[in-house]
Design a protein around this nucleic acid. Structure first.
Length: 498
RNA sequence: GCUCCGGUGGUGUAGCCCGGCCAAUCAUUCCGGCCUUUCGAGCCGGCGACCCGGGUUCAAAUCCCGGCCGGAGCACCA
């Protein structure tokens, strides 16, 4: 190998390492640091989808240095009404995901600032109050014509605006539009609404306002005021940029660098909107917001996932503009890598069958490593009556020999719900490795155990040693990784992943 | 209908801007084998992709045109 080849070989190896660490693609003009934001509407709890925004934005800030801002875009107290509890949930989940925001902004608390900027636009003649109904305006938009209100004189505009704030008008009677270009080739851009009247109490600011900005206006102003340098937003908000650029142009501001990404759908959860989720949870179809079956961060926390696994999972998805549909199996794989070496092993027998060992020579104390290769042991009583899972029991034929792991070998002599087996020997010898070695729980030491699962819940018996790992993720051998939640009358566990 | 954006193995992803070193990267899934007194994991091996058609070029995953498929916006929602 020549020197040059060696060098290239080495460089090649390094490049591969970079990919493995899930580095994000570089950002344009980010050398001096970045200011980025994640801007949810807290109308429900953070979900896996939110996690992507939190993680990728914060990761870029980590890469380049700068500031990560959490901004609540909560400017619609009716259609997308915020949930007061959700504000704190976002804060908690950001921290848990190792993305504590440097600054937290509530749009609803800054509404008067948006008024100030709007007033300037009205004075410049770049915005106007419009009395068209939605349907009427649609006609103008579709045909590319200007509506009659577009040419309202500045003084009149300001006067109408004042009256709006005073509460003279009804909801839907008047709205303020930003002038763009009624002949813009994309109808979605034509004179969009910046403020509308909503007489509904807001969870944060109550009845302080009834003239609310739309997302496009609020976001445009905030991104400038906060000094946002780079925006990551969903493809669905692509037109927002085109709309908002008009405001930047009017004020002579520089628009942040934007990057679009496609939407993620998680194979196992399908398409679930926050509003949809909220309806179902409030209808009582789930145990709560942290139900294992839900794609909320709360649920993943409760299941015992490591934040680092979730970070890696989303970082590996990158920031492409394609819509992606990805399986949770990838997340499981990431989490398993972190949890596998630390989780203690225990026996949990789901759907139990009691078996009686005839001719058992003696009751023995059985020692089993807490985890593979460990020299710390747990002990189980090797006694005559034990539970095994029915799926194991059912596959054995009469006369077949199997091994109760680390205990003894037995031979099947009977059939049915209470199984009869006969003691054969202590040592492994006669049992083939693998398949016929099964887990078990001694009847006298069994504790009732419930595992709240994704597809179904499982009931059975766990060895009592598991009680010492409350709060931790353990592996129930030949079952799954689970987090032990609490012990009351039964041991309550949550399914983590296979 | 109008406007816009995408399309690389089963699933994600790199490469595309600046064409050749791409008989295409990495991860995950799946299938074999080894190892292991569980299952993952680990190790070894395997299957498997540039949407289609033209064009430009000595050379196209990469550039251009057309088509097809998918997604989004056209809300006084975010």
């Amino acid at each position: 190998m020549s020197e040059a080849e060696k060098k290239r070989f080495l460089e090649g190896v390094e490049e591969k390492k970079v990919v493995k660490e899930h580095h994000l693609p570089p950002l344009e003009r980010a050398e001096k640091g970045v200011v980025m934001r994640f801007a949810p509407n807290p109308n429900g709890p953070p979900t896996l989808g939110s996690a992507r925004g939190i993680i990728v934005n914060s990761e870029y800030v980590r890469m380049y240095g700068g500031k990560f801002i959490l901004r609540f875009d909560d400017t619609d107290p009716r259609t997308k009404r915020p949930m007061i509890e959700a504000y704190d949930w976002y804060l908690e989940d950001c921290e848990w995901l190792d993305a504590k925001p440097d600054e937290v902004v509530y749009a609803s608390k800054r509404i008067s600032m948006y008024y100030d900027y709007l007033m300037k636009l009205l004075e410049m003649g770049k915005a106007y109050p419009c009395f068209c109904s939605q349907a009427e305006f649609k006609k103008y938009r579709d045909s590319g014509q200007e509506c009659p209100h577009r040419n309202t004189a500045v003084e009149d505009s300001l006067e109408i605006w004042e009256k709006m704030l005073e509460g003279v008008y009804q909801e839907g009677e008047v709205a303020v539009r930003i002038k763009t270009d009624m002949r813009h080739k994309d109808p979605a851009i034509r004179d969009w609404v910046a403020f509308r009247i909503i007489y509904a109490s807001h969870p944060v600011v109550g009845d302080a306002y009834h003239v609310y900005p739309t997302l496009d206006f609020e976001s445009a102003i905030e991104d400038h005021v906060l000094g946002i340098t780079h925006i990551l937003r969903g493809k669905d908000l692509m037109d927002s940029e085109r709309r908002q650029r008009y405001i930047y142009q009017y004020f002579g501001w520089e628009y942040p660098i934007t990057k679009l990404w496609g939407k993620v759908s998680i194979f196992e959860f399908g398409k679930l909107s926050t509003s949809q989720l909220r309806k179902e949870v409030e209808a009582g179809r789930y145990r709560g917001w942290d139900d294992v079956r839900l794609p909320t961060i709360k649920a993943f926390r409760r299941r015992g996932f490591r934040p680092e696994a979730i970070r890696k999972f989303f970082l590996s998805l990158g920031v492409s503009e394609n819509d992606v549909s990805v399986s949770l199996k990838n997340l499981y794989a990431e989490n398993r890598k972190l949890v596998d070496s630390e989780a203690n092993r225990y026996f949990f027998v789901a759907d139990p069958v009691k078996i009686v060992i005839e001719d058992l020579e003696e009751v023995r104390e059985v020692k089993i490593p807490l985890k593979p290769g460990s020299d710390v042991f747990r002990t189980l009583k090797g006694e005559q009556e034990v539970y095994i899972t029915s799926s194991d029991w059912n596959r054995f034929e009469k006369g077949e020999i199997f091994r109760l792991k680390e205990f003894c070998n037995v031979e099947v002599v009977g059939e049915g719900r209470i199984g009869k087996v006969r003691f054969v020997s202590w040592e492994m010898g006669e049992v083939k490795k693998g398949k016929n070695i099964i887990h078990w729980v001694p009847v006298s030491e069994a504790i009732k155990c419930m595992v709240e699962g994704v597809d179904r819940d499982c009931e059975g018996y766990a060895e009592r040693n598991a009680v010492s790992d409350i709060g931790k993720v353990v592996q129930f051998e030949r079952f799954a990784f689970c987090r032990i939640e609490e012990m009351d009358t039964v041991l309550k566990c949550i399914y983590t992943h296979p």
